[in-house]
């Protein structure tokens, strides 16, 4: 069965999530991947959104982080101070799942500005919950489309800390979470080198060439000695994903009034 690069990315990301994990979910691609995992191999994954909705099970994808569907299908809803202080800072989150506009070779994420902060070329939406998700979740996963503008040697602005300048700098600064474990893209999976913490290509999606990935990466991307080929999406995952996205697009096109 044919599939798109975006479907490959989302399905690959969803398969990395384990049943029963407590997952703090960013909106957009992370939310799609997390809900796909919940609807397939991880029915007991606990999805938390920063609006305070806990163990939410939406039958459509939310457009915003606080859509009604998230509150209606949650086990409980807590306040925003509670979600950040008790849940995230309190160490109750296994996986933080993030996206971003720009990421660098040490997994630092920029979602604030392109260009200088005081005189930005492009003003992006900003931090939201990301800095503390990246620092306080036990592990972080990142999902982003691969392109040369997004995968850069050094981000213009560190909104959310990855491994900073690499090595053990993150740990030395006292950031509690382990940091980004993988970047899932539409071309492959990147994981940090255990020593340098520089992200390397560890898995390549079928039909993509190494040159193509290198051409879309803004640093001299190292290729893992144990480079794997990512598993092709199964029919089941494709069906569930397409069904979810189709129902969502209908719901978001029609006015609710």
């Amino acid at each position: 069965m044919e599939y798109t690069k975006e479907e490959m990315m989302i399905i690959t990301a969803s398969r990395l999530l384990q049943n029963g994990e407590v997952c703090f979910v960013g909106i957009g691609l992370p939310s799609t991947a997390c809900n796909l995992a919940r609807l397939t191999h991880a029915p007991d994954i606990v999805l938390i959104y920063e609006s305070g909705t806990i163990d939410t099970k939406p039958h459509l994808l939310p457009l915003s982080i606080g859509d009604d569907i998230l509150a209606e299908t949650a086990s409980t809803v807590v306040s925003v101070p509670e979600i950040f202080n008790y849940w995230l800072q309190g160490g109750k989150v296994d996986v933080g799942f993030l996206g971003g506009a720009q990421i660098d070779k040490f997994g630092n994420i920029n979602s604030t500005v392109i260009g200088p902060y005081k005189k930005p070329k492009v003003r992006l939406p900003g931090a939201g919950g990301a800095p503390e998700i990246a620092s306080n979740a036990k592990n972080t996963f990142v999902i982003m489309k691969h392109n040369i503008r997004a995968f850069v040697e050094k981000v213009d602005f560190i909104t959310s800390a990855g491994y900073l300048n690499g090595g053990d700098e993150r740990r030395k600064m006292g950031i509690p979470g382990e940091g980004p474990q993988c970047i899932i893209t539409d071309m492959g999976i990147l994981r940090p080198n255990p020593e340098s913490k520089e992200f390397e290509l560890t898995s390549i999606h079928p039909g993509i060439s190494i040159q193509e990935i290198k051409d879309n990466t803004g640093w001299d991307l190292k290729i893992s000695e144990n480079l794997a080929v990512t598993e092709v999406p199964s029919l089941e995952y494709l069906h569930v994903l397409r069904d979810l996205q189709y129902r969502t697009s209908i719901a978001h096109t029609h006015s609710q009034k």
Binding site: N85, A161, E169, I175
Partner: peptide, 13 residues
């Protein structure tokens, strides 16, 4: 007070 902002540019700016 919070355990946050460590290593980020928001605190610097």
């Amino acid at each position: 007070v919070l355990r946050g902002y460590t290593g980020t540019d928001l605190a610097k700016e």
